[in-house]
Design a protein around this nucleic acid. Structure first.
Lengths: 121, 121, 121, 121
DNA sequence: GTGGTCTAGACCACA
DNA sequence: GTGGTCTAGACCACA
């Protein structure tokens, strides 16, 4: 039920964790006021060190996405539309690359269709 | 005319360089048999260290994308369809995230239209 | 009428409580022989855990400032001149910093005037 | 020539380091464009762990006081008047406490005189 | 040599 | 049990 991280990616593990947590909040799997899994719990589930998760949570705190309640855990504050906006920017960037390397619009539409017509996750 | 790298990105600079070079080859700006800019030249243009570019070129050599010709520089071997396939996978991944956070297909189509109907680069 | 603590300060909450209680005794709001609010009462007023206040009172007991009377609560023993001396040391320390960063004596005197000419709290 | 930290203070060591570095910048001992001592160098000088200094520098980076140059070190960006303003607030706070515990204005002036008439650091 | 990431693990503050 | 600080030390990216 939990997500995974790739320790061999050039993207640091703590950045991967930040991304995933943001996705889970943006998608409503975690709602405002919910508690995230504890630093140590998530670290153990992901098989990474506690400090790595702590750094991800600390960053998310600075970004105003979550908030630490001493002795209680991290609670979700919210993420607003900013995450969707970021992701749409990512989409635009990759589409530009695809266009520039000669991938036609039909191929793009095929993939969009596959994802959006897919009935499961 | 040249591309840029972001030294503050969590993505290592040499990985950024590899990506850009692959894009330039995939898009035909560099063709089979063309010489890439020399390690020193590119390093100076990007404002990064010689070793950083050298590592990017070394990796691309291992991946079979370019080939060193002693005393002449690095020549483009080719990149085939693999790069486009990778990028389409990236597209699929981001579309899934966008769908999961509730971004509708219309919004996706709007962005696709913007990029593909755009007449310039 | 009661004081507050800042749970996000790097200064531990129990240290903040100790400071405030000392100030209240030094300023005469609590006199020798007076009872402090009970651990549970203060904890509830401050919105902190019982153990946090208990630790502050325990420390103050060790320092000889207050004394537990079994079944009755904590009674003020006294604080003498030591607290004022500590605070004057704090004053000296901060003045040195202000002087070293170029804040002039006039600006210091202005603040002293503001505080000491102020007729209320 | 270097400063010291107190490992037994309730104030975390990394906060103490942040304070000291800010003082040194505010007082002009480090100017815009200067490099701070390296993370590992300062850690060794202070007898603390490298991660502790790293956390202090990271925080100062977020506050916009310094900036990391990969492979080169941390360079001073600037601190402006904000630090002096913070310190004057600290002064006001402590003066209020001193007044409330019955320390007279003469005693305050005596300390101010001592610090500001002192010819050495 | 300099910063960045990550692990492993101790001990403290707080609920 | 939960977060916070700190140590000790490995290995990577970059100049």
């Amino acid at each position: 039920m939990w997500f995974k991280v790739d320790p061999n990616s050039p993207v640091p593990v703590y950045v991967q964790i930040k991304q995933k947590v943001k996705e889970l909040i943006a998608s409503g799997k975690f709602k405002e006021g919910d508690f995230l899994p504890s630093v140590r719990r998530l670290a153990s589930d992901l098989g990474v060190n506690f400090n790595t998760v702590a750094k991800a949570y600390r960053d998310l705190t600075i970004e105003g996405v979550i908030k630490p309640l001493r002795g209680e855990g991290y609670v979700v504050v919210g993420i607003g539309r900013s995450f969707a906006r970021e992701k749409l920017e990512d989409l635009r960037r990759i589409l530009k690359v695809l266009r520039s390397i000669g991938v036609g619009r039909e191929e793009i539409e095929r993939v969009v269709g596959e994802v959006y017509d897919d009935t499961e996750g």
